[in-house]
Design a protein around this nucleic acid. Structure first.
Lengths: 344, 344
DNA sequence: ATTGGGTAGGAAATCGTTTCCAAATGGGTC
DNA sequence: GACCCATTTGGAAACGATTTCCTACCCAAT
């Protein structure tokens, strides 16, 4: 005796298969008596519908895919968690595919998602959307929401693709403005690069702040390094050790911040007097360091929730007139790591 | 014209449905000619099998569930990532359900997993396995692997359930032994509690080290607090501010470590001379802090991989004689935050 | 009393696969 | 050339639901 099917329920309730289905799904054309009997029979037998069978028939799997480059990254993990919560409430299951930045994995995942008939996809690839991956995803016909990346067409802010973006440019600009306001004229931005939207936007905001203040753009030093503590450490050592060193430093991400802080310590630079440090991304490290590091912060929960909301909206079909993208704000959390540069 | 089905492929290749299926699945009983024709037709039409239909028929969804209390927690995120990688290589998709420590969500997720016919489940609930959740999971009949938690029966280390455990007891014992060796006699353990296996094991190891050294167990101060920076901060202030304060402190987890470090700073205790600090769990914070914090470390990747391996083994059916559990080691990473206590 | 609109509910089709069964084919041996 | 056994192969039956179609029926209105 295997699993209890709806057929068993129907039989127990003494009605036909179709009626049982209608009764269980609260459909129309069901008398009160049958509804009652079927419900009773289902409960008594412990009936549990088979999602697979249902999905096959309805052509909707009730699952959402999440294509992300690195789930272990706290930035993504927080987002995934928030999205999962919202989607689960709406009855969807979230399946994740970690791509580790490998295009081959991205393609494979896209194909798999299609084959499994996932109803929608949240995507945050490691590099800006690989066109092939992209095509693979949209080919499935189900809605795709982009997380903080540019659409593949490269068509900036007026792309038709639903996306949840974070205002990294505004954040970086505000942060830089703040440092300039304190009197800094030579500021270094340590970044893992412009390969992805967040990096590009931050660099743009950084430079925009210099331009807007009418300052020599040569003071805006952009230093690109791999995102690793050791690389950042070496990089920061070189930058800060040279003559005419920057008086302030903006670090993108925990690892780079860690490397930069170590370098400052190695060089005996005391914060914030000898060097102002500002972190992009608010982490334990920034909050607890002595002195506490001033940081740019945005809400991971909001990103996840907004993405889920956007996707659900498409799934419900009222995607026509609705907003196609969300731009979330970035806040500057003032702490103790920034001050006016020492007089020279 | 909708999706390309295997029926279309069969027709195009001029063979029967069954033959096409056999050919595509590389089964036996297929002539070379048909295999070639079918493959060609499939390729030419761009056929992609429908996993849902297949799953319905084969009663296996090709998906593994992951029931975890908090994916955003780096500890879990790393594990999930490693497990996902291994499972994906084996052709499985990972679906995650975040339970936020709510038993109701756990139950709901267990039921959903059953309904969707997931082939297996990795589970790391927020509290030690809730019996009801557990029953819900095993009722599905698919294998369940426990991540660093005790089985619900409470039957410690000889439980029949496959599990991947981390040797927190041994780690804590080694760490405590190390501190005792440096000369410490009053050591505080700041822990979020004994609700889950890791906490229990660590407390046990901590106390075992005192016993084994023949020391007064009153020197082993276990202070239980919620895992939040603020709580830990207050707690540490109270502990370190009092008379006869501990000379060393073991912090369980990033947040507690952060709170403890802040408290030490507030009280003007310099590390490691006035206070030795040891972190359970190696994080950015521990590595970068000045002085760098000595920490217990274990491999999240190994946990995830081992769990996946254990599960795959069951799925392949050779679960009979095979090992049912893995115990992973914990290493002590020596840094600069521990020293002999100051002479009084 | 007949007709018409509407609801209830049963039978059957469908979703796209895999797998079972029986028939057919092929080759080798006596 | 007949017989036998082992492969191939086509046809059809699952898998477990939803959904369409269609008939039977009830009640009210003409």
């Amino acid at each position: 005796m295997g699993r209890i099917t709806i057929r068993d329920v129907a039989q127990a309730a003494g009605v036909s298969l179709g009626s049982a289905s209608r009764a269980l799904n609260g459909g129309k054309h069901v008398s009160a008596r049958i509804a009652r009997d079927v419900a009773a029979a289902a409960k008594q037998l412990g009936y549990e519908p088979d999602f697979l069978a249902r999905s096959l028939r309805t052509r909707s799997s009730g699952m959402i895919g999440c294509l992300v480059s690195d789930v272990a990254n706290p930035l993504y993990a927080g987002t995934v968690q928030a999205a999962e919560a919202r989607l689960r409430d709406a009855g969807y299951l979230l399946v994740i595919a970690n791509t580790a930045n490998e295009p081959a994995r991205e393609r494979a995942a896209a194909a798999e998602f299609r084959g499994r008939r996932l109803d929608g996809v949240l995507v945050a690839p490691g590099s800006d959307a690989n066109n092939e991956t992209w095509r693979g995803l949209v080919a499935g016909g189900s809605p795709v929401v982009i997380l903080d990346r540019d659409a593949p067409d490269g068509d900036g802010d007026d792309s038709p693709w639903p996306a949840v973006l974070v205002d990294h440019r505004g954040g970086a600009q505000a942060a830089t403005r703040y440092l300039i306001g304190l009197g800094h004229r030579r500021i270094a931005l340590l970044t893992p690069g412009a390969r992805m939207r967040p990096g590009r936007e931050r660099i743009a905001g950084f430079q925009a702040a210099f331009t807007e203040a009418g300052l020599d753009p040569a003071g805006a030093i952009v230093s690109t390094q791999e995102s690793s503590m050791d690389f950042a450490h070496g990089d920061a050592l070189a930058l800060l050790g040279g003559s005419n060193r920057p008086t302030a430093l903006i670090a993108l991400g925990t690892r780079i911040l860690a490397g930069a802080l170590r370098a400052a310590r190695d060089l005996n630079l005391s914060l914030p007097n000898d060097l102002s440090v500002l972190s992009v991304g608010d982490t334990d490290l920034a909050a607890v360091h002595a002195p506490a590091i001033t940081a740019l912060r945005w809400s991971l929960e909001d990103v996840g929730r907004a993405a889920a909301e956007l996707l659900l909206q498409r799934l419900r079909g009222d995607g026509a007139g609705a907003a196609t993208r969300a731009l979330l704000p970035v806040d500057l959390v003032l702490r103790e790591s920034c001050a006016a540069p020492a007089k020279t």
